[in-house]
Amino acid sequence: MNIFRLSGDVCHLVAIIILFLKIWRSKSCAGISGKSQLLFALVFTTRYLDLFTAFISIYNTVMKVVFLVLAYATVSLIYFRFRKSYDSESDSFRVEFLLVPVAGLSFLENYSFTPLEILWTFSIYLESVAILPQLFMITKTGEAESITTHYLFFLGLYRTLYLANWVWRYHEEGFFDQIAVVSGVVQTIFYCDFFYLYFTRVLRGSGKMTLP
């Protein structure tokens, strides 16, 4: 555990809590892509199956359970409790265009051809693109509430901090996970455009982020 890893995990947790509380308090999931949240729930489900096969640490187990619970709680708020506020018209990204290539790639490029490993690889690849329906939705509607952009900022910061963590671990432990690192770089690249807009529009301005 190093400072980049720990702060990355904290940012990830903060992001998920921000989104959950935003929906819970406003009783609305307007502007939120239910598809992205479903994909994240799928990411956690397929990655954390090792909860049943391996014990790593109390921290590891607790965080995995918290992520899983919050992911499914968020999905149920969007699709059940506050589904009337869900903007399915704008959430029109075709997820099969992500799921099919990601599933195919996880069969082709993995560390070992076993069910758990393939599902772990699938989750890593899927996480790198899972935010695309949300970014697509913002592009389509042309705006996002500032609280939604804070969520995206912390979510982007999380994987960016993981990049620093991997550099650190490579130097300290001589260990290099090519699947996670390449996917993490791809994932971070998707946030670059958003980071630019976040700093130039949300933090300097106020209220909603509007696209040009």
């Binding site: 890893r5 995990d9 990830h12 090792d50 391996a54 790593i56 640490s57 590891n60 965080m63 995995k64 992520f67 560390y111 772990w120 993981y162 963590n165 671990r169 490579y170 001589g174 260990f175 290099f176 996970d177 090519q178 699947i179 996670a180």
Partner: peptide, 10 residues
């Protein structure tokens, strides 16, 4: 350099 995966990561 070992190639591998960080199963302790989230």
């Amino acid at each position: 350099t070992k190639l591998g995966y960080y199963k302790d990561e989230l």
